[in-house]
Design a binder for these strands. Structure first.
Lengths: 239, 239
DNA sequence: ACAAAAGTTGACGGCGCGTCATAATTTAGA
DNA sequence: TCTAAATTATGACGCGCCGTCAACTTTTGT
């Protein structure tokens, strides 16, 4: 029995090692540098053993993507509960995404591989499903807040607009700005000194534009953000 | 002389053929299917000849990216001139981007390879420069409008926000939503029926939020968009 | 103790990129 | 027009990588 679990643990540990080494390689040397031969060598096993754990190279990358998405999803879940007021909860989600990119840059960087159709196309349906699950989960964290807001009377949708379409706008600006910020290091040499703050202000405009109460000026909004940030950091054990 | 130019033209024509075949392959069969051997075979030349035109495979892809970005840049330039009113010009840029994705999907799809660091990393500095040029050009098409708006009195920036940071927000939401719309075909099965309209509404909120005059309701905004769309389509020779 | 099951190994086939010596073609000058 | 130099074209080759598989080793269950 002790021996049985020893082998099990060895295999489990190796899987973790594979992911860890792969993550390090991806982050430090890029996708091209991730080779199954080198990975096996670094792991100290034969290449064939890798294929007992993962069907192909892309599956390893997507396993890492899933880990990353899970971290994001958990942060979203916490952020959605950080306040009673619907507008603050909405802002907290944006903040959570910001903190995710800043404090879990390694996960965010790897998360981007999900857009690579070459990689996504080689994965098992089961993994695809898991990825969709995390995405849906994040999406519904946000749309629940919007639905609560409607129920409470903080928000009423314009005609012909669904909750999901409302959320889509926030998703777009958050996703877009974070990808741009991450990919383009020379952004501040272009007049963009504080992209994070700029996006928060745009978000404030959108919330006001849809008449999400209580309406706020940019200044008031920044104060609320400041309060949320300290509360969230406690929950996320940052700093 | 006639013969000299005949050879020149042959080479020039071949370069166009390489790009054309590569584009078709990328769009129809994906990045994996683009192989130098197959490309040479399809072109009817030896593989070595390809390398007289492009240093490596990635350079071919990035040449296509540049073609795509040029089309976008030209559309932005035209859109920026479609009206006298600064707010309408701003809306026209968003619309141009929308029309670009819809009517030049083949270019938009290929444009996304610019985010692939594997590909971007293998290109010549000169090509990187060209890409940055197109990007800057698009950016400045937009920031010029914002500067005009400030000069005319249609807009006054909040303290601590640069023109570029203002533009960054629009860039983010447009880029983000278009990438999401393009990559996730199942978006409408998720409650998002008209992502385009949703994003236009968000844009309207942002413009209002920054007090960009004349302020508009969503309904008024949609009417203006309708007018702009017909004018732009004429300029772009669509429909 | 021993047989079946589970896990490991690394050589191998196949493919793709980019090179380079060689061959073919074009250009330019007499 | 003829020839030598320059330009362009060719495809076999080296290298590296992925994923497989038959042979081998370890673990499990009886």
């Amino acid at each position: 029995m002790a021996k049985a679990s020893r082998k099990q643990l060895e295999i489990q540990q190796r899987e973790a090692d594979i992911l860890q080494i792969s993550r390090r390689t991806l982050l430090e040397e890029g996708y091209e540098a991730l080779s199954m031969d080198k990975l096996a060598a670094e792991l100290g096993t034969a290449k064939g053993t890798l294929y007992n754990h993962f069907d192909n190279k892309e599956e390893i990358v997507l396993a890492l993507v899933c880990q990353a998405m899970q971290v994001r999803q958990q942060m979203f879940g916490i952020a959605a509960m950080v306040s009673q007021k619907t507008r603050e909860r909405m802002m907290a989600i944006g903040l959570a995404s910001e903190l995710y990119v800043q404090h879990h840059a390694e996960h965010f960087a790897i998360e981007q591989f999900v857009s690579n159709s070459t990689i996504r196309g080689k994965s098992k349906p089961e993994r695809q499903e898991l990825i969709r699950h995390f995405e849906t989960q994040c999406m519904s964290s946000v749309s629940s807040i919007a639905r609560d807001a409607i129920a409470v009377g903080d928000l009423s949708l314009p005609p012909q607009l669904t909750v999901e379409e409302l959320v889509f706008g926030f998703w777009s600006i958050t996703f877009g700005s974070h990808v741009l910020t991450f990919d383009r290091p020379a952004l501040n040499e272009l007049g963009i000194n504080d992209a994070w703050r700029a996006v928060r202000m745009h978000g404030c405009s959108i919330l006001n534009g849809f008449n999400w109460k209580p309406l706020m000026t940019f200044e008031e909004s920044e104060e609320v953000f400041a309060g949320l940030v300290t509360r969230l950091k406690v929950h996320f054990s940052f700093d």
